[in-house]
Write a protein that binds this DNA or RNA. Structure first.
Lengths: 148, 148
DNA sequence: TTCTTTGCAAATGCTTTGCACCCAG
DNA sequence: CTGGGTGCAAAGCATTTGCAAAGAA
């Protein structure tokens, strides 16, 4: 899928979601979606605000928070709490489900996929008779020191 | 281990930690540790503050935050971010390592242990040549609806 | 005595809210 | 037209910081 096809795809998904939930299709909402999907990696509200302001969008933080909530609801965006200060986000459509390792000394972020997390999920669903919608898994560690 | 023995044990651990790191052994620090270990389940700073105030302790939120940081450093307390609003804590010594399921409809919290998380950890350590200190794993879900 | 730690209050910073105006339906 | 959505500024709230006083070493 090209970047352009991805943009079209998520625009359609968002559009259908808004329709279904009787929310209006404002240009702001689609502009924000586009900016998010133009960007790779993690971002926070301030990043996004600055990025859009520098491109001469007229947008407010309130609308960013607002729209991100909608995008979370239709699973086009994922939310993270790496630190307790602010929330981080990333686009989620078209990218593999993954979890994170945070290297606490450097702040570096590693993404990984491990199928065993799905088997744990299944076990828990059966064991507790629940339906699991999503999960968050973070490992915190450091690079191994070389032996001297 | 009785509750009393547990209290003695963690007091000793904390004491040694403070010594080793050249922090002072103030009565406030031990009072806070005691209150935390007297309590079962999760709590936040406000809970703890109210609880201690109602027992006529003279204590400030600043000191609570401060002391909790020390207790986190010596692994006597664990920190959680269930929501993005505030941090939750729980005592960690003498209780099995466990992870959490959050039932988003009721707010109910389930604790579980799954050894497979340790095998994932090992895999990652080898794969990325890192040392993992700890992790957080939360599953978010709902009780299964009965078929009607 | 010395200098860390304390309580208090003010400050900070992310997020939410109130409100008048705007515009999608 | 109408009511939901927007930008802006103010308010909220958890956490951090500054500072004078207290007290551990």
């Amino acid at each position: 899928m090209t970047q352009e096809e991805l943009q079209e795809k998520v625009k359609t998904i968002f559009s259908l979601y808004l329709e279904k939930n009787q929310h209006r299709k404002t240009p702001e909402r689609f502009a924000i979606l586009k900016e998010i999907y133009d960007f790779d990696g993690h971002f926070d509200i301030e990043n996004l605000y600055t990025k859009m302001k520098s491109q001469n969008y007229r947008v407010s933080r309130a609308t960013l928070y607002n729209t991100i909530d909608l995008l979370l609801s239709c699973n086009l965006v994922r939310k993270h709490q790496f630190s307790s200060t602010n929330s981080q986000f990333e686009k989620s459509y078209g990218s593999k489900q993954h979890d994170h390792i945070i290297l606490t000394d450097s702040g570096e972020l590693i993404e990984f996929c491990d199928p065993r997390i799905q088997t744990i999920k299944k076990t828990l669903e059966d064991l507790f008779d629940i339906e699991i919608e999503h999960h968050t898994l973070y490992f915190y560690g450091t690079r191994k020191k070389e032996k001297s």
